[in-house]
């Protein structure tokens, strides 16, 4: 995306397009990456509720893959995940490994 020059900006950095924060992809901030282990998932959707961004995709009431464009790697989903029989459905892995 071509960045705007200083003459093209809205005065006072006012955002005039509602919902445009979805264009602000923050995935590159991540140092730890959540990994979804489907066989341990009970579809409780805690991860979707607790995710402070929009990194957990849900379709037809079912949890799908992570949207890594918005995952900052905070680890809340992994912490809250109850898993199945003591096995977490979300684990955090170091980026770059």
């Amino acid at each position: 995306m071509k960045l705007k020059g200083w003459k093209e900006l809205t005065p006072g950095a006012v955002v005039t397009e509602p919902g445009s924060s979805k264009k602000f992809k923050t995935g590159s901030w991540r140092a730890f990456k959540p990994k979804w282990i489907e066989e341990n998932c009970i579809q409780c959707l805690f991860c979707w509720i607790y995710c402070p961004d929009m990194a957990v995709k849900v379709k037809d009431g079912k949890r799908g893959e992570f949207d890594y464009d918005y995952c900052k790697g905070c680890g809340i989903c992994a912490l809250e995940c109850p898993g199945k029989k003591g096995n977490k459905a979300i684990v955090m892995e170091e980026e770059g490994k």
């Binding site: 960045l3 200083w6 003459k7 809205t10 005065p11 950095a13």
Partner: peptide, 29 residues
Amino acid sequence: QLNPLLNIEKPVSYGPLILTDYYMEYRKA
């Protein structure tokens, strides 16, 4: 006001996070 917050017909946000990619352009402006 140029972009009033109370104009619900045209919603706006004030005070967004402006990082390394735009901060300097706002200062120049």
